[in-house]
Amino acid sequence: MFLFKKTDPGVRELLKTAKDGVVVCGHCKEEIDRKELIRNYYICPKCQKYLRIPARDRITLIADRDSFSEMAANVTSVDFLKFPGYEEKLNKARMSTGEKEAVVCGVCKIDGISVAIFAMDPRFIMASMGSAVGEKITRIFEHATRYHLPVIGFTASGGARMQEGIVSLMQMAKVSGAVKRHSNGGNLYVTVLTDPTTGGVTASFAMQGDILLAEPKALIGFAGRRVVEQTTKSTLPDNFQSAEFLLEHGFIDQIIPREDLRDTIVNILKLHSRKGETL
């Protein structure tokens, strides 16, 4: 009998480059060994809170080893409205995350099956969607349409990036157009809704998948909780806008614990290909 599940290959990959040391859980404020946290799929071993995962680590966790090839890596935001504080916010986000933008996308293999993939990074201005994020996700859908690839998307976002004004709102339509073309081509799109998926991202590509999965207790909604409370002048139940709330109301297909996510996605990909057919 095995007491422990065999270490996931994705976890092994992350552990190779992980630095020693401790991090503080944002939820229970306890100190956690960084490697233990990664071994536990970024779920706090003390309080079981699903901590947010950097975009690149998301991809490493699900992709076959060394199979990821990044696309549109150099698309970056511009402060074209000279919006107060935007330039500083961008610089700070780039410095603290090492990423150029709030989404990482490309192609990879999952259990030998070729897919297009994107993962949003909530550490980068709450993964809000401006021109760069919209452009990158549009390109990944266009690429997937051209080569008949499924798209696996990990969403996390505060919504449209107000620092880019109306142009950021239009990214919702731009991406939706690309999703529509991908769908018309008979291609599969699976979204994994992670904490937090809100605003304009919920109101566009997050909800447009053929299959919608979510992580346990992830916040998923359109309007912000405080706005809803002000509108209804009442306090809302604790589970309001949680993944469990959406499942109950019929808006997602399943809630998948992190340790089962890869297997679930592999199964979905296989169910969308003919048995025995090599993709």
Partner: peptide, 26 residues
């Protein structure tokens, strides 16, 4: 803006808008 009430969230305000945008594009 779209109504930001509790019942609108329960009935999928984000999903409704997402579907409209996607279907309009086609």
């Amino acid at each position: 803006g779209a109504y930001p009430g509790a019942e609108a969230e329960e009935r999928g305000q984000g999903q409704a808008i997402a579907e409209n945008i996607m279907e309009m594009m086609g």
